[in-house]
Amino acid sequence: MPDSSLIEAAIYIVKGTGLTVALIVGAMLLGLVVGLPMAAVQVYGPRWGRFLVSVYVWFFRGIPILVLLFIFYFGLRIIVENLLASALGHRVTIPPFAATVTTLGLTSAAYQSQFFKGAILSLHPGQYQAALSLGFSRTAALTGVILPQALRVAIPAWANEYSILLKDSALAYVLGTLEIMARIKHMVATTHQHVPFYILAGAIYYALTFLGLRALGRLERRTRIPGLGQDADLEAKPND
């Protein structure tokens, strides 16, 4: 609980910022772990697998994030809690944070699967066949040859997903996750200073966007394949 001291207020907000970052990082990773296999299924999988993935994608694309948060928090969370309770024999509470990360992560997985699918399709298709011809299993061909390239191609889309998730995460306060917005609202309620605090919130989101995009931009440059893409014309062309 902050009192009027400025330092305590700052600490209070910084903690919220940390929680927001944890939320986004968790959601992006969950989205990656779920989205990537779905992309692989959409490109290489059987017909029924492709169908299931497209149902999943349409579900999450078709419903506003706020509605999903409520469905997960008041519906799914209770069901999971009851299942856990009957399995473990005692009551377990899923914190709002976990429910939020799950909702944002599974939503992000729908979007991530779409751009990973695009990334896989943008690769030269013969590479998968070449890997199989060398004796790779399908899984090894995917993880050893296709994914390292698809992940590189997907970094700009990932940066885009990061800024979208950052903004979506501002809705998490409705479930009582004490991230930036929840804490800003609390400060507003206790101090009745609307404008300064909302400007502060905006500034924090802006800074997070800026830093995140810069980090991903650097990652993109550092993992660029020599000779491919932008710097292709700069490199000396080989002569025989």
Binding site: L123, H124, G126, Q127, Q129, A130, A131, S133, V145, P148, Q149, R152, I225, L228
Partner: peptide, 13 residues
Amino acid sequence: IGMIFQDFNLFDH
């Protein structure tokens, strides 16, 4: 069995 393809299919990365 080794296979050589018309368009090489080297691993680009």
